[in-house]
Simulated assay, not measured.
Amino acid sequence: MHCSHFTARRCLSCTELATAYPDQLSAKQRHCAGLLSAWPRIDWLPPVASAESGFRNKAKMVVSGSARRPVLGILGADGKGVDLRDCGLYSASLQASFEAMADFIRDAGLTPYDVAQRRGELKFLLVTESPDGELMLRLVMRSEAQLPALRAGLPALLQRLPKLAVVSVNLQPEHKAVLEGEREILLSEHGDLRMPVNDRVLHLRPQSFFQTHTDIAAALYRQARDWVEEIRPTSIWDLYCGVGGFALHCAGPWRKVTGIELSAEAIASAIRSRDELGLARMEFIVGDATDYVRQASERPDLVIVNPPRRGIGEPLARLLDESPAVESVIYSSCNAESLARDLRSMPAFEPVRARLLDMFPHTGHYEVIVLLRRREVSST
């Protein structure tokens, strides 16, 4: 993928862009296999490659410049805005939506937040696109001061972007390197974005997490489902379940599935998907994964974990390791270093299969999914 911003060194976010894509993928495979070399019997499935451009479903745009001439993109090394509305990571339809959003900022008189001066209101635009082309727009604001102007200008924006399904304001009043705050104010009639993935429809609320690459997320869920159908467990825990992607894909009419997630917004989204699909033997619970496992009186046959970059951590790894009823674990990781660390805390399990999925092309990051089976206990 050619990028004029990378060539001119205005944006270097795609750190591996100068490397041919097949070489990027090979390097990631070597890196991941090297980190998991302590388990030489892993059967590595072929890596899942990405499209080289137009794959990203989410834009996180710093808003700079002025209300009359907003700049959507990033802040350069000099603190000035770099406009990235033509970034090749985004689809053509997502790129096309940015012009209407910039006009909306101008017409509503939304003052971009000046980091150096610590003044202004609008900090970020967070835009998510569904496979159907529907959009969710979140405006991260410093305060509620310009909410009347936002509401007044919203009808014109919806007319220009008929596929804009969800609009909200996130309040982040503090001057610190935290993208968003806790409070969300819904401005649109609808509060969630439909995300068709494989044969399931997921729902995203404004503060719900979803992978940034829909096609690779779909492949990730299919891989987990294939392994589950091979193992045929009667019960599953999906820990760090988010909006329920793994749980919903691995459900069955005779299989009990429980999803655990700290985010109440994500659980509400998962419950809606469950109810639409009529999956009676599925439960979603708001809670901490480690606390839930520690307090549960029963254990499932199979556990799926999809933690943040820090991994599941030693306490949870030990709890799973010391639960003989858990025969299999499917571990989806965006950080193979924390994955390797967690596997060392689970000596009762043997990693038997793994697959790298290129969730983050042109960077050094990737997703890897690993199937673990409990080792047989010797009778002697």
Rank of each mutant, 00 (worst) to 15 (best):
F104N: 11
K80D: 09
I267L: 08
A354K: 00
G259H: 13
V140K: 10
I330A: 06
A289K: 02
A152W: 10
W254H: 14
A270T: 10
H365T: 09
F6A: 15
R85A: 05
Q29T: 14
H2T: 08
D107F: 10
V293I: 03
I74V: 13
R232D: 14
G245T: 02
R373C: 06
V178W: 06
V127Y: 03
Q207V: 04
A317W: 08
F124D: 00
L179C: 01
E337Y: 12
I216M: 02
P47L: 06
A18F: 13
C87I: 11
N198P: 00
L204E: 01
G76T: 07
F104Q: 12
R222F: 11
P155N: 08
Y240N: 12
L164N: 03
E230L: 14
V169S: 12
L36R: 04
V127E: 02
L339R: 11
G120P: 04
G65T: 13
W44Q: 12
P300K: 03
G133C: 02
A177W: 09
A266Y: 11
Q29Y: 09
L36Y: 02
L94H: 05
L126R: 09
S332T: 12
M136H: 05
L25Q: 08
A27P: 10
L147H: 15
I216V: 10
E314R: 15
S13T: 09
G88I: 02
P22Q: 05
W39F: 09
H175P: 03
A336F: 12
A247D: 01
R69E: 07
F104V: 10
K256I: 14
F349L: 02
R341S: 00
R225H: 15
G242R: 09
A268M: 03
L248Q: 10
R225P: 01
G153D: 09
Y21E: 00
P361I: 04
D114C: 11
A247C: 01
G287K: 06
R318K: 13
G120A: 04
A325I: 04
D199R: 15
D238N: 12
E180M: 05
A33L: 05
G34K: 11
L248F: 13
E52V: 13
R41Q: 13
W237V: 05
S93T: 12
H5V: 07
E52N: 14
A51G: 08
P324D: 01
I216A: 06
P131Q: 04
S345Q: 11
R299H: 01
R142P: 00
S328K: 11
N335Y: 04
V257C: 08
G79M: 07
R138K: 10
R344V: 02
F124P: 00
G181C: 04
T290N: 11
V243K: 15
L357M: 12
C11S: 06
A296I: 00
P307I: 01
I285Y: 09
L187S: 08
R9G: 10
F55R: 12
P253W: 11
G181Q: 05
E230N: 15
H5M: 05
D358Y: 14
S273M: 01
L186Y: 02
H2A: 01
P324G: 06
H175S: 09
S273K: 08
M101N: 14
P70I: 09
V228S: 07
Q211E: 00
L186T: 01
L135G: 07
E174A: 05
A219M: 10
V115H: 13
I285K: 15
L125Q: 08
G54W: 11
R299W: 01
G54S: 03
G76D: 01
